[in-house]
Amino acid sequence: MSFHTPIQPAWTCAGCADPWPCHTRRQELLAEYAGATVSLSVYMATCLLDAMIDLADDRSGYLYWRFMGWWR
């Protein structure tokens, strides 16, 4: 189990305090979802929608890149 989980509503990493998903969690997610990109996209899209509610003042393009754009 990862220590790099999101702390909501700020969406910071519990393991390193960087914006979640941090670099470490991104690498873990790529390994966990290897060969299952659709499942990874569904999971990250769900996180994105939650974050858009919590981080309503952040730009949607930034949030998209943060949650979806890094793994494509």
Rank of each mutant, 00 (worst) to 15 (best):
G61C: 01
L40R: 01
M68S: 07
S41T: 12
W65I: 14
C13D: 04
I53Q: 05
G35W: 08
P9A: 03
S60C: 09
T46W: 12
L29K: 06
T46P: 01
F3T: 14
Q8Y: 12
G15E: 09
Y62S: 13
T5W: 08
T46N: 05
L48N: 08
D57Y: 00
A14N: 08
M68D: 07
S41P: 00
L29C: 09
F3P: 13
Y64N: 14
T5A: 14
L55D: 06
L49G: 07
T5I: 06
C22F: 01
R72A: 06
A10N: 02
S41W: 01
A36L: 13
R25H: 07
P9V: 12
G35R: 10
A10Q: 05
T24W: 03
L48H: 07
P6G: 11
P21I: 02
S41C: 07
C16W: 03
R26K: 10
P9E: 08
D58C: 14
M1K: 10
I53S: 01
A17E: 10
L29F: 08
Y33T: 09
A31F: 14
L29I: 02
A56T: 04
L49D: 06
L63K: 15
S2N: 05
Y62E: 14
C13L: 04
R66L: 12
G15F: 04
A31C: 07
A17Q: 15
H23V: 00
R59W: 02
C22R: 03
S2A: 02
R25E: 11
L29H: 07
L55S: 04
Q8W: 13
D50L: 15
R66N: 10
I53A: 04
T24K: 04
P6K: 14
L30T: 07
R25D: 07
T46S: 13
T24I: 08
V42G: 01
P19A: 04
D54T: 09
I53R: 00
S2Q: 01
M52V: 03
G61P: 10
Y43K: 03
G15H: 05
L48W: 09
F67R: 00
